[in-house]
Amino acid sequence: MRKDVLVCLGVGVLAPLPCLAEEALPVPPSAPAASGCQHAIPALTPIVIETLIDLGSAVSQSLDTFPIRLAEPIVVDGREVLPAGSAGEGEVVHAKKAGGSGTPGELVLAARWLEACGTRLRLRSMHVALAGQGAVGTVNAINAGAALAPVPIGLVGFAIRGRNVLYPAGTRATAKIAVRFKPPAPVPETEDLLPTSNPDAAVYEG
């Protein structure tokens, strides 16, 4: 330890360098972070999102909203312009439970926005419009057969239900940025020089 200090003092005499621990060295300014929202995002840029809760024709209601997350970073011209993880919101456009006569459940989802860079980026084109497996054809076939049967077996068709649609949490889907995002203009350096804590200076007009 003492030897280290002596060496340090010696070097300090010979060279005009401070002899300090490495941790104290000023860190050079790093390159602009990819998450800095400094790049425009063109309209119709495809993105990958994932839903964060379970959705389905039996558990969701029309006009419900649900949380989404940007599952993969947005890349434009090979450059990452928005990292994965931004939160957002989607909407259940249509949900209908499966019913009798073989009617399948239905689910239509839309992505609405992502919160990023202090704004809400509007989204579109999620393209999730699903219907469960129906049994309408089976019911109709039974009915056709029932027309010739001596007993009213066609009534069984009312009890045959289609299947519901399940869209589990974590399911990924594609969507698009609806409108072009333009990064906010940088704050001019001169604005940093304006006094902010002295009220007298703020009203000075001389």
């Binding site: 063109p42 309209a43 119709l44 840029t45 495809p46 434009v76 926005w113 919160e115 202090g118 704004t119 809400r120 980026l121 509007r122 409108v179 072009r180 995002f181 333009k182």
Partner: peptide, 18 residues
């Protein structure tokens, strides 16, 4: 879906403030 990315509409339609 596979069309080149369009840079429309104009700036006036940028993302709404949070």
């Amino acid at each position: 879906d596979d069309a080149p990315i369009a840079d429309k509409p104009a700036d006036a339609e940028e993302g709404a403030p949070a």
